[in-house]
C-alpha cells in the first residue's frame, strides 16, 4: 500500500516537469519576442537566456528527482 502511494506521489511530482516545460517555453518565447523587436541586442543576451532557461529547468529537474526518489528510493 505504501509503495502504491509512493507511485501516486511520483506521478504527481512528475507533473512538475511538465510545469517546468511551461516555464522554459515562457523564457524562450519571451526572449524570441524581444529578439524580434530588437535583433541587434539579441546576440548579447543569449547568455542570459541560457541562465534563465537553466534556472527554470532546474526546478523541473528537482521535481523529476523527487519522482525518481519516490519510485526507487522510498
Amino acid at each position: 500500500m505504501e509503495g502504491e502511494l509512493a507511485h501516486i506521489g511520483a506521478g504527481l511530482a512528475g507533473l512538475g516537469t511538465g510545469l517546468a516545460a511551461l516555464g522554459v517555453g515562457n523564457v524562450a518565447g519571451n526572449f524570441l519576442a524581444g529578439a524580434l523587436r530588437n535583433p541587434s541586442a539579441a546576440a548579447g543576451q543569449t547568455a542570459t537566456l541560457f541562465i534563465g532557461i537553466a534556472f527554470a529547468e532546474a526546478l523541473g529537474i528537482f521535481s523529476f528527482l523527487v519522482a525518481l526518489l519516490l519510485m526507487f528510493a522510498v
Binding site: A58, F64, L68
Partner: peptide
Amino acid sequence: VSHSIRLAGNMMAGHA
C-alpha cells in the same frame, strides 16, 4: 545544490 543537481538531474533524466 541546484548547481550540482541540475547537471546530475539532466543527465540522469535523459538517460533514464
